[in-house]
């Protein structure tokens, strides 16, 4: 099963027309300042943010880029990727290409239509599913192919569909951390006093957490990070707003553990910790920034 994280992240937050913040659109426009050629990239970003292209957003794009609305509307209606109507939480793409067609894709689509009680191209009333058909996904040997939320399912039969829809409702993205080999626990210690940060009393993700003292805006308290490398789960004793830079100190020697280097993504100081077994791990001190690096010796 292929995993496409970028497609998954498109999952729709059900925004209504009023929710559109002109600032967000301006931010997207700023990121693409290459001039006339960047229209499709801008529309793509808007579509990813809202799940569809809201009329208000298109009007803002037209106003700010000095392009006529009709040009932008023409592009938005030309490409199948763009949608002018909100899509459901889960996107189902059924292939109706020649190979899938002869292997029974029309029956699969009919079954999907019946179970969701919508027609192809429509969204269910509860905004859960959008059903689309595509002309070829390039996996003809595996047909009929159905893609749900970026996950590809091959040789789909009518009898599988109920199961697939149930799985889609639960979500395919729930990663079982215990079974994922990309995530492993590490034990870290202070760069100054070499005492371990391991907090046996407090577990995150089923492993003892990494306990640090944190200070932000004059407030102080304990912050516990998951000891699984690759997991971003954090427990804090007090509220730390997203985007704040936190200064961390060692709970044993009270020394500042921030590094001299800066996060390449957001510019906040990195904090560094020694890894048991050799090497160091550096993580960004900004809340919400997921930058981290592991230097093994």
């Amino acid at each position: 099963m292929m995993q496409q994280k970028d497609v998954v992240s498109q999952k729709v937050n059900n925004h209504s027309q009023d929710d559109i913040n002109p600032e967000d659109i301006l931010k997207i426009l700023d990121e693409h300042s290459e001039g006339m050629g960047s229209l499709i990239a801008v529309l793509e970003d808007i579509q990813i943010k809202y799940g569809y292209l809201p009329e208000k957003a298109l009007r803002i794009v037209s106003e700010k880029t000095n392009r006529s609305l009709v040009d932008i509307y023409g592009v938005a209606t030309f490409y199948k990727f763009f949608s002018l109507h909100p899509k459901g939480k889960h996107l189902i793409c059924a292939c109706l290409g020649t190979a899938c067609h002869v292997r029974g894709a029309p029956r699969v689509v009919a079954e999907l239509e019946q179970q969701l009680s919508i027609k192809a191209g429509q969204t269910t009333e509860d905004k859960e599913f959008t059903l689309e058909t595509v002309n070829c996904l390039g996996a003809c040997a595996l047909g009929p192919v159905v893609v749900i939320d970026g996950h590809y399912f091959s040789k789909v039969r009518r009898s599988n569909i109920k199961q697939l829809l149930d799985k889609a409702r639960e979500g395919f993205d729930k990663v079982d951390i215990g079974k994922d080999e990309r995530i492993f626990p590490i034990e870290v210690s202070c760069v100054h006093c070499k005492h371990s940060f391991k907090d046996e009393e407090f577990s995150i993700d089923g492993y003892p957490s990494i306990g640090l003292n944190a200070a932000v805006n004059g407030k102080k308290g304990r912050v516990r990070l998951s000891s699984l490398y690759g997991s971003y789960n954090v427990s804090t004793e007090f509220e730390i707003p997203q985007g704040m830079v936190v200064s961390f100190t060692c709970p044993h020697c009270n020394a500042e553990i921030s590094d001299v280097s800066e996060c390449p993504d957001c510019g906040a100081p990195l904090i560094s910790m020694l890894v048991k077994g050799g090497g160091a791990v550096r993580i960004c001190s900004r809340r919400g920034c997921k930058n981290h690096m592991l230097d093994l010796v």
């Binding site: 298109l58 006529s68 609305l69 023409g74």
Partner: peptide, 17 residues
Amino acid sequence: KAIGFRNRGEKRSIGTP
């Protein structure tokens, strides 16, 4: 530039956004 082409293929039409 008040009117232009919209959609494509057999759904192509001319009109306002």
